[in-house]
Design a protein around this nucleic acid. Structure first.
Lengths: 215, 215
DNA sequence: AACTTATGAATGAACG
DNA sequence: CGTTCATTCATAAGTT
C-alpha cells in the first residue's frame, strides 16, 4: 500500500466554498479570488514579508506574527497563519534550494569534465535553481548571510555524493550500499533494485543505464 | 469548471518579464546569457524518467534526484530541480486524474455522510495564534504514512543574535515590551528591526512602514 | 494565428 | 523542520 489515497481534498476542494465576502475582498487576487480558500498574497504583502525575511527574520514569534499579520491586513485579507506559513516555507525553501544547488553544482562539473564533453551549450551558466542562489526572482538574498548560519556543509558528510562516475563506462557504482536509507516507499525500493531501463534494444543513443542501482 | 483565466501575475514576486525581449524566440537556448527558459526535456530524458516512474519510483530522495539528474544530463541540460519537479508533477497529476474519476462517482455520498458539515464558512479561526506558541494542532488529516529518515537529529544551536527591538515605535499590542523576544526565537527578534507600524492617516497608502530599504 | 492541452515551475498549506 | 500534497500560474507544444 503505497498508494496514498489521502486524497480527500474533497471536503475542501469540492465545497463550493463560501465566498468569503465578509472580507470585502482585497484588491488583490488577480482574477481568481473567490474560488479557493487559499491565501493569495498581494504584491505588497509579499514585498513586506520578503523584506522582513531579508532583514533577518526567520522564525517570528507569535507576537510578531500577529503584528505582521495585522499590518499586512491593510493590503488585503490575511491571517496569522498565513504569515506563519510564509516564513516557514520561505525558510525551508531557501535551504532546500541551497542544498540542492550544492549537490548539483558538484555533480555537473564532474559530469561535464568527464568523458563526452556535453553539447557545449549545456554548460549551464545561470540557472534559477542552481549556482548563485538566484533562484527566487526577487528574493535575492544577497546580503550578509551571517545572520543565518544554519548548515555547515561538512555536517552532512555522510550522505555525500559518492561521486559516482556518471557514465556507463563503468557506472553502477555499487556505492549505493545496502545501508541506503529506506526512505520509505516500498515501491521505490523495489524499483531501485532492479530497474533496468527498458530501452535496450533501441537506444540509438548512449548509454545511460539507469537501473536505479545507482540510486 | 475552473477557469484558469488568472489574469496576470502582476506581482507574484517572480514575474519573469514575459516580455523579455522581443519576438518569441524562446529557442531553448539554455546557457546563453539570456534568461533561462523552462527546462525542456528531451525525449530520452522523458523516457527515462517515465521508466523510473513506472517502475515505481515516485518520490525520489535528494540523492536519487541528484543521481538521476546527473545521468540525464548526458542528454541535455538538466538540473536537480527539474527532476524533482518532474516527479512531483507526474505524481500529482496522476493522482489528480484518478481522484477526479473517483470523486465523480460518490460525491454525494461523501457529502451527506460527513456529519452536519459545520458552517465551513466559519470554521476558520481568526487567530489561532492567540496564545499557544505552538500553534495549529488540530488537523487530523492523516495523509498517508510514509516513513522517511535519513537525517540524524541534529542538535543545532540556535544562533542568538542581539536584539533590536521590533516594532519600536508603537504597537497596538503592548506586548512589545522588552522581554518579548523570550517568546521563542531569539533570532526572530533580531530581525524585525524597523518594523514600525505606522498607521499614518493615509489609508490609501501603505500604512506599513517598514523602513527597510523598500525601494 | 487563436485556442487547447500538456507540463514545467512555484507556492500555500499541512503532515510526521 | 524537512517533506509532501494540492492548486495555481506560465508557457511550450499540439490542434483546429
Amino acid at each position: 500500500m503505497e498508494e496514498r489515497m489521502s486524497g480527500f481534498c474533497i471536503a475542501k476542494a469540492r465545497t463550493h466554498l463560501r465566498n468569503s465576502n465578509n472580507n470585502k475582498n482585497s484588491n488583490n487576487d488577480y482574477g481568481s479570488g473567490t474560488k479557493c480558500g487559499r491565501w493569495n498574497p498581494t504584491a505588497e504583502q509579499v514585498k513586506v514579508l520578503t523584506e522582513l525575511f531579508r532583514s533577518g527574520l526567520r522564525t517570528p514569534s507569535t507576537d510578531q506574527i500577529q503584528k505582521i499579520s495585522s499590518q499586512l491586513s491593510f493590503y488585503g485579507k490575511i491571517e496569522s497563519k498565513n504569515v506563519f506559513y510564509w516564513f516557514q516555507n520561505h525558510k525551508a525553501r531557501e535551504r532546500q534550494k541551497r542544498r540542492r544547488v550544492n549537490l548539483d553544482d558538484n555533480d555537473v562539473v564532474l559530469s561535464s569534465s568527464s568523458i563526452i564533453s556535453p553539447p557545449s551549450n549545456l554548460i549551464r551558466r545561470d540557472d534559477p535553481f542552481s549556482s548563485s542562489a538566484r533562484y527566487f526572482s526577487e528574493m535575492s538574498h544577497n546580503r550578509h548571510l551571517q545572520y543565518y548560519n544554519e548548515e555547515p556543509p561538512a555536517a552532512k558528510a555522510e550522505r555525500v555524493i559518492e561521486t559516482l562516475q556518471l557514465f556507463p563506462l563503468n557506472s553502477f557504482n555499487e556505492a549505493t550500499d545496502h545501508h541506503q536509507y529506506y526512505y520509505g516507499r516500498k515501491e521505490a525500493a523495489a524499483a531501485a533494485r532492479g530497474f533496468s531501463c527498458g530501452f535496450s534494444s533501441e537506444m540509438d543513443h548512449p548509454p545511460l543505464d539507469l537501473r536505479l542501482s545507482f540510486l
